[in-house]
Amino acid sequence: MNKVALLIPHYNNFRGLVTSINSIDSSEFIDIVIVDDGSTREKIDEDVLIKAFKANGTIKFLYLQENKGIEHALNHGLDYILNNNYQFTARLDVGDVCVGKRFQIQHKFLEDNKNIKFIGANANAFDMEGNFLFRYNFPLKHSEIKKRIYLNAVFVHPTFMFDNEIIKTVGYYPTNYKSAEDFAFAMKVVKHFITENLEECLVNVEINPNGISLSKRNQQIRSRLKVIKDNFYFGYYPIYGLFRNIIICITPNKWIAALKKIKKRNDRLH
């Protein structure tokens, strides 16, 4: 058994799952825990995935009888990981691609920096045709992360790796913040532990128009607002973050999309 378990929730996207598994470098030492969240189509073919997995480790398949939502699938997998005494948990979403020796890099960082219990990394975003869209550049140090988490994303979920010790303090993924369980989880971690992002882009993230952040945008923003309110204190960043997310919530989706296109265009020019 390896020290790191990779947690992947799956729902109706087997082809994307094969792509993700196939992207793991053959030199990696990692076990995979795949939780199928009640898929009704594109169901898992275990033999295909076992053949696609070239790294040093095993794959465990867990199946939920009905679709309960990603937060429940994550917690089901996390429960298995903790009960089997893995030291670290890493995350990857279906369709996303690992870059280089991603898990070795993150694992070594956590082993070398015992005071840091949770890390993410920068990432590249691609559309479903494989076209580059933009690069995620997150704050790297905890001092900036703990301030800016109230404003916008400071981690991207598929880059998470954390020491499982943190679960004793922060608990599992919250189930009362629909479509923002990763933000709520990260908020709890940032409040109790030192966190960091690695500057390297270690994951290529697939921007799926049917993904949670796009198809359930309003629900996600309302949940983010609830997370901010539940962790609010009187300070510049929480106040600004609260009003910023309220404005985003009431702004039409097409306006947000247009502003993002302008920002991406400017990022490419600079």
Rank of each mutant, 00 (worst) to 15 (best):
E66D: 15
A52P: 08
K168I: 03
H157E: 13
I24N: 04
I34F: 04
F232K: 04
G100D: 10
E206D: 02
E181T: 00
L202W: 07
L140I: 13
H107F: 12
M1T: 10
V189Y: 01
F183N: 00
G171T: 03
L214H: 05
K226N: 09
N152L: 06
K147N: 10
P158N: 05
G100K: 08
R224Q: 13
H72V: 14
K43M: 15
L6G: 01
V35H: 05
R244A: 15
D36E: 08
Y237E: 09
N13V: 05
F132A: 00
N113A: 03
N245E: 13
L62A: 09
H157G: 11
F162G: 01
N85Y: 07
L78T: 01
Y80C: 00
K254V: 09
D93P: 04
E196K: 15
G77R: 04
D267W: 10
G69R: 08
I44R: 08
S23G: 10
K51Y: 10
T169A: 08
N152C: 01
Y136T: 03
Y63W: 10
F14K: 05
V156A: 00
S20C: 04
D45W: 08
R224W: 07
I21A: 05
G77W: 04
F88I: 01
N124C: 14
G38P: 07
G100N: 11
K117L: 15
V4G: 01
E199P: 03
I194A: 11
S26A: 14
K114R: 15
V48F: 11
F155Q: 01
K168M: 03
I212G: 12
D25H: 14
G171K: 07
K264D: 12
V189C: 05
D93T: 02
L259W: 12
A257K: 15
S143C: 08
Q220M: 10
S39Y: 02
F160I: 00
Q219C: 06
E46R: 14
L62F: 09
N245T: 07
I105H: 07
F126P: 05
R244Q: 14
G120R: 08
K43W: 09
L225P: 02
A257D: 15
G77M: 01
K263F: 13
A258V: 01
N13H: 06
T19A: 14
V170Q: 00
E111D: 11
A52E: 13
L151I: 14
H10S: 00
I221A: 05
V97G: 01
F160R: 01
I105M: 13
I50L: 11
E206T: 14
Q87P: 00
Y150T: 02
I212C: 12
I246K: 15
K263N: 12
K168A: 13
G235S: 14
I250L: 10
Q87H: 07
K168G: 10
I256D: 11
E129T: 13
T175C: 07
Q104P: 00
L202P: 06
